[in-house]
Design a protein around this nucleic acid. Structure first.
Lengths: 151, 151
DNA sequence: ACTATATAGTGCGAAATCGTACTATATAGG
DNA sequence: CCTATATAGTACGATTTCGCACTATATAGT
């Protein structure tokens, strides 16, 4: 079994993943308000999907970004009035991030605006292919995550 | 057929793609020299895989980045001595980007250093799953590309 | 309780990304 | 040939990302 072949295939996979990440990000951002970028939306979306009240550090880990980057992303969301920072009653060093009604409204609007694009793009693949793709991407992501933790 | 379901699935796919792009980029950059980032490597790799002598604008389109970004990426590669800029004999406004021996050596070394990581990560999926994944990602990328061109 | 170490968040500076505007050159229409 | 328009590249500034260092607070060991 040629190991070289497998390396090239994985390289090609990561190459496609990188291009798709870039194109899909551009597609998303085209539907967001001027100056609002994917990370800003992703933060609000995450707080709604999982739950708000999490600390910045937990959020930084969830998004795989340095904590300084998360500080900045949160500050933008605060400036827009989408989240509020409160003290963490369980840890004086820490804070908690809470959604506002405006934040929830912004997310709902963005999701609705994104819908048609997602529907259109879904045409690229059959439903079984979509499911297979998602399953394998998830496997790969988990594997990469574990490899990273092994540092 | 619930359209909503398909939207959620595509959203989840793009979410995984974004995370994998981030993790694989970090994995790559950990093997590159200090301060060298993925776009710098990608430029050199592209010039070797496809061919050098292309113009900055053509390269910007190939990487789906604004031409100002490509100017910057090329300037870093010039600073490292990996590429040289020459006039474009066919167009006085334009330039051409050529690899140096140092650039080729840098790319060969980087590929070799990346190999073990790629092999390790290939364990996440069977060979047929890798092939299926690559095929579907390519289909999706082509579809996104066409959707973008339709603007 | 006291000290040493670890952790949460942020200020700061460097680099990357990218939109706008500008210069130089090319192309098209008359 | 001359003018109008389009295109290639870059200078500049705003924003994002992120490493380093610092402060404040928590936790562990004695």
């Amino acid at each position: 079994m040629p190991d070289d072949q497998s390396q090239r295939r994985m390289f090609a996979i990561f190459n496609e993943v990188g291009i798709i990440a870039q194109l899909s990000r551009a597609m998303f951002e085209a539907r967001l308000p001027e100056g609002v970028l994917l990370p800003h939306f992703s933060l609000i979306n995450h707080l709604m999907r999982v739950r708000d009240g999490q600390t910045p550090l937990v959020l930084a880990r969830a998004f795989q970004v340095p904590k300084t980057t998360m500080t900045h992303i949160i500050s933008v969301a605060v400036k827009h009035g989408w989240v509020e920072l409160h003290p963490n009653p369980k840890d004086g060093r820490s804070k908690t991030v809470w959604l506002t009604d405006a934040g929830r409204a912004f997310r709902d609007r963005a999701i609705a605006d994104l819908g048609p694009d997602l529907t259109h793009v879904a045409d690229a693949l059959s439903v079984p292919d979509q499911e297979g793709l998602l399953t394998r991407l998830t496997d790969l992501r988990i594997h990469l995550d574990r490899a990273r933790d092994a540092d």
